[in-house]
Amino acid sequence: MVRRREMVAGMATLSLLSLGGGFATTALAQEATLDGDTIPTAQGDITVHPVDHASLLLGYGDQTIYIDPVGGAERYAGLPAATAILITHGHGDHFDVPTLEAIAGDAPIITNQDVFDKLPEALRAQATAMANGDDGDINGIALSAVPAHNTTEGRMRYHPVGVGNGYLLTLGDKVVYVAGDTEPTPEMLAMTGIAVAFLPMNLPYTMTPEQAAEAINTFKPAIVYPYHYGESDLSVLETAIGADTELRLRNWYPNGG
Score class of each variant (00 low, 15 high):
Gly180Ile: 12
Asp181Met: 08
Asp181Thr: 14
Thr182Asn: 02
Thr182Gln: 07
Glu183Pro: 08
Glu183Leu: 03
Glu183Gly: 07
Glu183Arg: 08
Pro184Leu: 05
Thr185Ile: 11
Thr185His: 11
Pro186Gln: 01
Pro186Ile: 10
Pro186Gly: 02
Pro186Trp: 07
Glu187His: 13
Met188Ala: 13
Met188Asn: 14
Met188Lys: 09
Leu189Asp: 12
Leu189Tyr: 04
Leu189Trp: 05
Ala190Glu: 15
Ala190Phe: 04
Ala190Leu: 06
Ala190Asn: 14
Met191Leu: 15
Met191Asn: 05
Met191Cys: 05
Thr192Val: 13
Gly193Ile: 06
Gly193Ser: 04
Ile194Gln: 00
Ile194Arg: 03
Ile194Thr: 14
Ile194Pro: 05
Ala195Arg: 10
Ala195Leu: 03
Ala195Ser: 15
Val196Ala: 01
Val196Gly: 04
Val196Thr: 14
Val196Leu: 14
Ala197Pro: 04
Ala197Val: 11
Ala197Gly: 01
Phe198Asn: 01
Phe198Leu: 11
Phe198Gly: 00
Leu199Glu: 00
Leu199Tyr: 11
Leu199Trp: 10
Pro200Asn: 08
Pro200Ser: 14
Met201Ile: 10
Met201Lys: 05
Asn202Trp: 14
Leu203Asp: 05
Leu203Trp: 03
Leu203Tyr: 02
Tyr205Thr: 15
Tyr205Ile: 12
Tyr205Arg: 13
Thr206Phe: 12
Thr206Cys: 10
Thr206Val: 14
Met207Asn: 07
Met207Asp: 03
Met207Phe: 09
Thr208Leu: 02
Thr208His: 07
Thr208Arg: 05
Gln211Cys: 01
Gln211Phe: 02
Gln211Pro: 02
Ala212Glu: 07
Ala212Val: 15
Ala212Leu: 13
Ala212Ile: 11
Ala212Ser: 10
Ala212Tyr: 06
Ala213Tyr: 03
Glu214Phe: 10
Glu214Asp: 12
Ala215Asp: 02
Ala215Asn: 01
Ile216His: 04
Asn217Lys: 09
Asn217Tyr: 07
Asn217Cys: 08
Asn217Leu: 07
Thr218Lys: 11
Thr218Gly: 02
Thr218Met: 02
Phe219Leu: 02
Phe219Ser: 00
Phe219Asn: 01
Lys220Trp: 00
Lys220Tyr: 00
Pro221Lys: 03
Pro221Phe: 06
Ala222Glu: 12
Ala222Leu: 04
Val224Met: 03
Val224Cys: 02
Tyr225Val: 09
Tyr225Glu: 01
Pro226Ala: 06
Pro226Thr: 12
Tyr227Phe: 15
Tyr227Asp: 06
Tyr227Leu: 13
Tyr227Lys: 09
Tyr227Met: 14
His228Trp: 14
His228Met: 08
Tyr229Lys: 06
Tyr229Cys: 14
Tyr229His: 15
Gly230Asp: 15
Gly230Val: 09
Glu231Met: 10
Glu231Ile: 13
Ser232Met: 03
Ser232Gln: 07
Ser232Cys: 03
Ser232Leu: 04
Ser232Ala: 15
Asp233Asn: 15
Asp233Arg: 12
Asp233Pro: 06
Asp233Glu: 09
Asp233Gln: 05
Leu234His: 06
Ser235Ala: 12
Ser235Lys: 12
Ser235Glu: 11
Ser235Tyr: 03
Val236Glu: 00
Val236Ser: 10
Leu237Gln: 03
Leu237Cys: 09
Glu238Pro: 04
Glu238Cys: 02
